[in-house]
């Protein structure tokens, strides 16, 4: 029972780190319509910056400043946000898909840098001994797991509330207006590039934060954690949960992570050990097909975006039916 509970806590904590990343992507894509194909790269920047800031010093490696985790998380977020800002500044004035190509390229180069800048990133072996929040509680697994889960719940909640506030503010309205009808928003004097750049950078900050939190939760990072597959998982989470909807992003993260974990253990249970790498690739085929299928069949995802310009009619409709059912109640 305790085992099951602590596995549950571990699973949920991990899922919530993805939820943070997914919330960042939701600001970029769901609200601003900016396609980021380099999610893995920005998550990696967040994780590595935080790891370098907080780990104890190691011979032969730059960094290891031994700062508290909170400083690391902030640094990780800022690093990823700054990178997003630079890439956005480079491409947002151009065609929409140039941003996609540039972020894809950035993720490739970040992966190379992680592998080759051994003096900074530890090369292919990565960085270990990343301080875990509440490391002092490690003697009591149950309490330790609960504390970590609590931190992640708080982080997700904070990101959710801030992003929800942002998207409901006039600033968020301008973002959606730009996404729906750029000409009209421009006619009202809104500068599309500035708004999009802000959204892209803030989304990048949140992604980096998620990457940092994940690194501290696992305690060990290596370049292999940040392959394009990660980008893909996060995208699937957002699309399935419902892009544009912050709660959808969180739901999607937990749901897809659960599917991933279940199918992963099914693969290791069903296939002989020699065939597991092969079977794992089948798992990715299924995810790719699932994403394409959701795009085709249910583009709004499970929850979808509420109250956009696209659905004023539907909302009016709902209001009418609500009135009718109320009327029926009073009649009865």
């Amino acid at each position: 029972m305790i085992d099951l509970l602590s596995y549950g806590a571990f699973f949920l904590t991990m899922a919530l780190t993805y939820a943070v990343i997914c919330l960042g992507l939701n600001l970029q894509w769901g609200q601003a319509g900016l396609f980021n194909v380099g999610v893995a790269g920005f998550v990696a920047v967040g994780a590595y910056v935080s790891a370098i800031l907080t780990t104890p010093p190691v011979d032969g490696r730059i960094g290891g400043f031994g700062l508290p985790p909170l400083a690391g998380w902030l640094g990780g977020g800022l690093g990823a946000g700054l990178l997003c800002f630079l890439l956005g500044a480079l491409t947002l004035r151009l065609r929409a898909d140039y941003l996609a190509i540039a972020t894809f390229g950035a993720a490739v180069v970040i992966q190379l840098a992680l592998l080759n800048l051994e003096g900074l990133t530890g090369g292919p072996f990565g960085i270990g001994f990343i301080p875990r929040p509440f490391g002092g509680l490690a003697g009591e697994p149950g309490l330790f797991a609960a504390a970590n889960l609590g931190v992640l719940i708080l982080l997700v909640l904070a990101c959710y509330l801030v992003l929800q506030h942002l998207t409901r503010s006039p600033w968020g309205r301008v973002l959606r207006a730009l996404r729906e009808d750029e000409e009209a928003a421009r006619a009202l004097g809104k500068d599309p590039v500035a708004y999009r750049l802000q959204a892209f950078a803030i989304g990048g900050f949140v992604m980096g934060l998620g990457g940092a939190a994940q690194a501290h939760f696992i305690g060990f990072i290596a370049p292999d954690n940040y392959l394009p597959t990660l980008t893909f998982q996060v995208w699937t989470m957002l699309i399935i949960g419902g892009s544009g909807n912050m709660r959808g992003a969180i739901l999607g993260a937990v749901l897809v992570w659960a599917l991933w974990a279940v199918s992963g253990s099914a693969v290791s249970a069903l296939f002989p050990s020699g065939q597991q790498a092969r079977a794992a690739s089948l798992q990715l085929v299924l995810i790719g097909v699932a994403l394409s299928a959701v795009l085709l069949l249910r583009p709004r995802g499970l929850l979808g975006e509420a109250g956009t310009l696209r659905s004023p009619l539907r909302r009016a409709d709902r209001r009418d039916t609500a009135k009718i059912s109320q009327g029926q109640k009073t009649n009865a």
Binding site: P228, F232, G288, S292
Partner: peptide
Amino acid sequence: MASFGAAL
């Protein structure tokens, strides 16, 4: 995005 899914 669909092309990204197809690629994977």
